[in-house]
Each structure stands twice: as structure tokens, then as C-alpha cells.
Design a protein around this nucleic acid. Structure first.
Lengths: 114, 114
DNA sequence: TTTTGTGCAAATCGTTTGCACCGTT
DNA sequence: AACGGTGCAAACGATTTGCACAAAA
């Protein structure tokens, strides 16, 4: 419950288990990292969170479960929703026989311009 | 060297460190998993392989380093290049101030049609 | 007393690192 | 004798699991 408030209490967010764990400690909610993981997984299973995989290390959880894509700021290791809704594919790839699309994950990786 | 032959000896491939390790053992090339990882990382650094992150667990390495996207067969945990080259974005999202696009990773997740 | 829910210590698993070994200069 | 390259045992970090404890039935 307490984690739910932290997660959904202030707008859309992208966080890792570690980040939420730190927030919980700051908010004087005593729990272990394992509990944070288990909670995040349960919420994901219930369709309240969406997992976003960016680079194989940390897993991000997104409180925005609508269909959308992400910017990844490589310098800050930070995710942002891509605001432009009508960013669309001009042409869907033809899907192999016997399969259907389950989800499209797009990550636009951004680096600081020098 | 031996790993190079396995990797590039027979067409474009998508494999994990573990998969290449198994192949090496079958080919009677005695080495450790750590060596496979180190070799894959060196080849990636040299621009001969491309890392593809699909779901946060295993990391895939792709021998095709040209710009392209992937299908992910969820039932077989298998990657495929998306053949249709002209799968393009109709509209590039406007990138936040001070940033430029470093790379776009798109994974179209496929499930078996029932 | 049994059953159900909750939290976490310890285990697991993919990956990286420090260092020992060996051939070369 | 010093140097450079190679391979791997052991360490590491993110995540999962089995189980102990507690509250409810």
C-alpha cells in the first residue's frame, strides 16, 4: 500500500526497484529491496505498471501503461515518455506466418549534443 | 579466433553468450563462459557485433551491424531481423533541447496466434 | 489449529574483473 | 628479466525464491 502511494501519488514516473527503495527509506517506510521487487512484479502482473527494458542492466517500471514509446537519456540514465502521440509507423512490417504482434517497444536513445 | 569462425562462419545470427558457449563446446573448443563474454564484448567494441536488449535478462548479440530492427518471438525467446527495410517512422519525434538521437531500438514482440 | 498473507535472508543467475600463467622480446 | 596477451576463478550486482512469522478464520 505504502509503495502504491509513492508510485502513483505524484504523476507519471519511471523508476527502478532501487530508486523506489531509496524513496521508501526516505519516507520512513522500513522494508527490504526484495519486497520492493515483489511488489513491483505484482503490480506489473495486475497491469498497473509496465516494464521497460533499456540496456539489459536495470529494469525500469513505468506508471504509464498506455501505449507509448520512450526517450532514453544516455547521460542521465533516465527515461522519458515520447509525448508526440502520432509518432507512428508508416508501414507495419509483415509479421511471420502464425504470429501476431503482442507489443511494440521502441526506445530512442539520446546523447547530449556537443 | 575460433569464436570468430563460429559467429561469422554461417550467415547472420542472433545469439547469447550462453548459446555461443554451447556451440563452442560442441565444436570441441575448450573455453570458459567468461572468455566468451570477454570476446563478445571486444567484438562489440570493435563494431563487429551489436548488442540487443530485449527483456532485461539475457543480452543478445547480432552479427548484423547495419541499422535495422527486430522481431522477438516470445514463445521461442528468439530474435529475427525485420526484413522490410522501408519500415520507417512517418514522423520523427521532436528531440528535447540539447540532445541528439544516438540510436533507435525497436523490438516488435510477437506471440503465437491461437 | 489450520490457513492465508507478508516480508526478507539467502540463493540464483547473468555478467565483469583481477590476476595467474605463458610465450615473446 | 621485463612485457604483453589470454583465459578463467572468483567476485559482483540485479533479481527471485523458499521459508519463517503473524494475523485471520
Amino acid at each position: 500500500m505504502a509503495l502504491g502511494w509513492l508510485l502513483f501519488g505524484k504523476g507519471p514516473r519511471h523508476l527502478t526497484a532501487e530508486m523506489l527503495y531509496e524513496e521508501a527509506l526516505l519516507a520512513k517506510i522500513p522494508l527490504s529491496l526484495a519486497t520492493v521487487y515483489n511488489t513491483l512484479n505484482q503490480l506489473t502482473g495486475a497491469g498497473l505498471l509496465r516494464q521497460v527494458s533499456v540496456d539489459g542492466t536495470k529494469t525500469y517500471f513505468d506508471t504509464n501503461v498506455t501505449e507509448h514509446h520512450h526517450f532514453y537519456l544516455e547521460n542521465k540514465y533516465e527515461l522519458m515518455d515520447i509525448p508526440d502521440v502520432n509518432l507512428e509507423l508508416s508501414k507495419m512490417p509483415e509479421v511471420p506466418e502464425g504470429y501476431e504482434i503482442s507489443r511494440i517497444d521502441m526506445v530512442v536513445r539520446l546523447r547530449k549534443r556537443r
